Every structure is written in C-alpha cells, then in structure tokens.
Computed example of a mutant assay.
Amino acid sequence: MMIYQAASQRYERMVYRSLGTSGVKLSAIGLGLWNNFGSVDANDRQAAIIHQAFDLGITYFDLANNYGPEPGSAETNFGRILARDLHAYRDELFIASKAGYVMWPGPYGNWGSRKSLIASADQSLRRTGLDYFDVFYTHRPDPQTDPEETALALDQLVRSGKTLYVGLSNYNGEQTRQMAQIFRELRTPYIINQPRYNLLNRQIETDLLPELANQHQAAVSFSSLCQGLLTDKYLHGVPADSRANKATIPFLHPVQVDQTLQTIQALNQVAQRRHQSLAQMALAWNLRQPTMASVLIGASRPEQVVANVQALDHLDFTPAELTEIDTILDRQAPIDWSAK
C-alpha cells in the first residue's frame, strides 16, 4: 500500500475566510461527510475523496454523530483514514462534529440536554480517535430543554478540552440571538453557525444572516447544492432512481418537479454564460454573502471535489447576473421546507 503524502501546493489555490472576529479561517469549500462515508460505502473511495479534498486545500471536514449509515460509521471511517493517512497533518485540519438528532435508543440519545450532548461528544471522540474536535455543534434547537442548559453543556466541552470552539446548526435568527447572549456571558468561544442555504432555499436571508451580521459572526452552509438538484443531474429530466420519487424531499415532490426543472435549467443558462457549471455557480452564489465563510459539498468520487473547488475561479457576480437569478427564482412557486 502506498503511503499518502499531501500535495505540496495544496494551499496555493484555496481561498480561506475568517470566522467573524475569531482568529480562525476556514477553507471556502468544506467537505461534508453526511453521505458516502458510511459502512455501506467503499473504504478506498472514501479515502480517495478525503485525500483529494486535502490536496486541494480543503481543511474543513464536517461530521455528525449520526452520519452513516449506519449511524456513527462516518466518524469511524474518517477516524480510520485520519489515523492511517492524515495523522501527521492533524494540526492543518479543522474537524467538526455535532449532536442533536437521534443516535441511540432511549431518552438520552437525542436532542440537546447536557446528558445527551456530553455523552455524544465522548462517543464521537472515541469513534474518530481524536483527542478533541476543532468545533462541536448542537445540531438543532431542543424545544424541551432550556437553551442555557444546552449552552452550558457546550461550554463544559470546551473547558474539559473536548472541543476548541462551539457552533449552532439549524437555529433561526431569534434562537441564535438568545444562544449568542448566553455564550457571551459564559465567555464560551462560539464562532460559527451552520444553516441550510442554497439558491432554492433562501429563508435565512431575512432572519439568520442579518442576526449574524449584527453579531459579527460567520456561517457555513449545508445542502449548498440542494442535495444534488443544483448540479447537472436533473438538467435533462428526472432520473428513474432520483430523489424526485421520494415525497419527503419537498423541492422534488411530484407536483413541483416540472417547475423546478424549468428553474434549474434557466439557472444553468446563467451559469453557462459565466463559463461555470450550475454547481459551481451555486457554490459561488452562496459565497457572495459576506457572512458565509464556507460552503459544504458532498462527493461520491474525487472528480466531484475537483470540479466544485473550481467554483473559486469565478466568485464575482455582476449586478445584472444577480438580478437575473432573482427573477428566475421569483418565478418558482413557494416550497414547503417544513416537509424536509
């Protein structure tokens, strides 16, 4: 087996953006391990994707306790690759994990109590083999737990050396404001917010992003390519095995497929004039936001990572391009994102 050695020029092309007023900078493209890194996925391919990402200067790797399938297997697989191939580069990586969705049976394997968050962080550290995470998120707000308890649990993880920083994911503007106030009082190093954001889901523009701007905080977006919809996969129709057949994916629900396809085809025409793929334009569009430090991509093969990083070659938009994109999106019927 060949020993992995990172590309010597890995930092020359990547863009790095500051996380608010903190001293941390993230690669403008981050690799999400939500899909394709579980127990059902080929280990060699997982390693090839991670190697390719780091070789291109991606330093932000995003995990969660329940990523798989099976839940937890993405952390285990990443930890194995890290120990075998990337151990010497640990201090060059910014590794995140999260807790807050269902992970194990019973009342403590879910949501945001101190019991759940601390137990989950301990399990995640064991699975990855890490001494600490660079950032640990609460994955979603818990309506039945006092926000102060969740904040205190994250603060304890920092003070016990299990994470350097903390973050929020899936929090709206008001929830973020409330948590940020508690973190300030505790002097907890809260530095990042991770919302769902893409061309077809702009809800955070009127709520969360203004709040983050007021706080001088930064975001990293997930579902940046709308789970594959903002790629070339759907430009010529809906593949038989696509997510359009799953009613739980609202933007591909059968009643909206035709209109959604027209929308992405129109967006693709804008991308072509920019000499970009639709995916590259979608990533660049997310990064146009001043508060957006990084965008997460998923990948099932290394070539996708290479193509997505090329979005950084053309991040600027003209006012006319932004107006045209807004006009295209305004024609799209409202989507019920609560059905996600």
Rank of each mutant, 00 (worst) to 15 (best):
R10G: 01
M14S: 12
S22V: 05
G23Q: 11
I29Q: 08
N35M: 13
D41N: 15
D55H: 06
Y60R: 09
L63Y: 06
Y67K: 02
Y67G: 05
P69L: 11
E70D: 13
F78M: 02
L82W: 13
R90T: 05
F94D: 02
P105V: 07
G109V: 07
S113G: 13
I118W: 05
I118R: 12
L125K: 05
H139T: 11
P143V: 08
T145W: 02
Y165S: 05
L168C: 03
Q175R: 12
T176C: 03
R184P: 00
E185R: 15
R187N: 15
Y190G: 00
I191H: 06
P195Q: 12
L200G: 06
E205W: 08
L208K: 11
A213Y: 05
A213H: 11
H216A: 11
Q217T: 00
S223Q: 10
S224N: 06
G228I: 01
D232N: 15
Y234L: 03
H236T: 10
K246G: 00
A247V: 13
Q256L: 05
L261P: 08
I264E: 03
I264M: 04
L278W: 02
R288M: 02
A293F: 08
S294C: 10
I297H: 01
G298K: 02
P302Q: 00
V309M: 13
E321F: 01
E324C: 08
D326H: 10
P334D: 10
D336E: 09
S338W: 00
